[in-house]
Nucleic acid binder design. Structure first.
Lengths: 192, 192
DNA sequence: CCAAATAATAGAACCTGTTACAACTTGGAG
DNA sequence: CTCCAAGTTGTAACAGGTTCTATTATTTGG
C-alpha cells in the first residue's frame, strides 16, 4: 500500500488546490467539488485521499508547517535569550501566516474544529510546532530531550499561539494583540 | 424591539433543547430541526432567534458561563495565593464541564469554529471568563481595573484554558493533562 | 376595539459535505 | 502478454444547515 509517484502528485495537487481556494475566500470557499475539479481529480478520489474537508485543511496546515520547519531548520536561530529566539520563530511564522489571512482562517478553523477522527493529522501539526518551539528554546539544531516541565511549557506556548491565531482569524483581535499575548506568555514562562 | 416574556421563554426553551441534545450526542447531535421540535418552535423561528447553529451553541456556552459566574460571585474565593484561587475557579469549572463531555465538546467546538459573524456572542463568553479570572486573581468581589499587563496575563490564561479544553474534547489529552497545562501556565504567569 | 405591523408556523427548496455505485483504467504478478 | 486487484471516474443520491414563502397568530398604536 505504498504510494506511487502518481499518487503523491495527486495528493499534492489536491492540497495545492485547497490552499489556492482557501487563500481567496477562506474556509467556506474550500468546496469539495471545486477542490476536486481544480486538482483534476474525481470527487470520490478526493475523498479517498482525505476523508473529510477538515482532514484536508489540517493536512494543508501540516504541510505549511513542514515548510516553515524546513526553513528554520537550516541554520541556528539567532538571539541571546530563549525568549528572543522563540519570539523570532513564532513572530516570523505569525507574520507570514497573516500575509494570507483567508488561508490562515481556513486552516486554523479546521484545526480547531477537528474531532477525534483527525487525531493523526492534528498530532502531526502539534509535533512540528512543538519541535520548532523546542529548537528555538534550545537555540541549537540538535534536540536534547525536554524535561517534563519544559514539555508543559512548550505546550502552553503552543496553546497560546493557536488561540491567538483563532481570535485574530475571527477578528476579535489584531496583529498587535497577537504579538502581545505571545510575548507575555513567552516572557513569563521562560524567564531568563 | 424589546423582548417580551414569551420571547424570553422561547429563547430559553431553545437553548435548553440545544443543551439537552448536545449533552448526549455532542455537536453532531444538535440538529437544527430537532432543536426546533424539542423547543416546540418552528424552524424559521429558531433561525430568527439564533442565526446559525454556531450562534446557538456559543450562546449556550455563554449561558453556562453566566451560571458559573453567578455561583462564584456569591462569596469570596478562598485561597492564599492568586495561583490557588485561579486554580480553584478554573479547576472547578473544568471539572463540572468534564462531567458532561458531549455537551462541552459541542460548545467548545462551536466556540472555536465561530467566525466573525459571531463576534457578539464570542465576546460575551470572553468577557465573562475574563471577569471570573480577574476576580480570582484579586480574591475579592470588587473589580479594580486591571493593568494592561494583568489584562494580557488574563488573556493568556483564558487562551490556555480554552485550548486545553479543545484538546481534551477531541481526545488528544486527558483530564490530568488539562489540569497540568493550566497549572503550569497559572503558576508561571502569576508567580507569588 | 380595530387595523397595520410584527412574529410564528409548516413546509418546500436549496446548498454543500459526504456516501454509494457502476463502469472504466492501470500497474504489476505470473 | 494477459489477467486481476486496486485505483479512478462520473454521476446520482442522501443528510443536515440554511433560506424562502405563503399563511396564520399576536402585538400594538390609534
Amino acid at each position: 500500500m505504498s504510494t506511487s509517484p502518481a499518487q503523491q502528485q495527486r495528493r499534492r495537487r489536491i492540497i495545492d488546490a485547497a490552499v489556492r481556494l482557501a487563500a481567496d475566500g477562506g474556509y467556506d470557499a474550500v468546496q469539495m467539488r471545486d477542490v476536486a475539479d481544480d486538482a483534476g481529480v474525481a470527487l470520490g478520489t478526493l475523498y479517498r485521499y482525505f476523508p473529510s474537508k477538515v482532514h484536508l485543511l489540517v493536512s494543508a496546515l501540516a504541510s505549511q508547517f513542514e515548510q516553515a520547519e524546513a526553513i528554520t531548520e537550516r541554520r541556528a536561530i539567532v538571539g541571546d535569550t530563549a525568549h528572543e529566539r522563540v519570539m523570532k520563530i513564532l513572530g516570523g511564522t505569525t507574520v507570514s501566516l497573516q500575509k494570507q489571512p483567508q488561508l490562515t482562517e481556513a486552516m486554523v478553523r479546521a484545526f480547531m474544529f477537528a474531532d477525534a477522527s483527525v487525531l493523526g493529522e492534528i498530532e502531526e501539526v502539534g509535533s512540528r510546532l512543538t519541535r520548532m518551539i523546542a529548537r528555538a528554546i534550545a537555540g541549537t539544531p540538535d534536540h536534547g530531550e525536554a524535561t517534563e516541565e519544559e514539555a508543559a511549557i512548550i505546550r502552553v506556548i503552543a496553546d497560546v499561539w493557536m488561540s491567538s491565531l483563532v481570535s485574530w482569524a475571527n477578528g476579535r483581535s489584531g496583529a498587535a494583540e497577537v504579538e502581545k499575548s505571545i510575548d507575555v506568555a513567552v516572557r513569563l514562562l521562560l524567564r531568563d
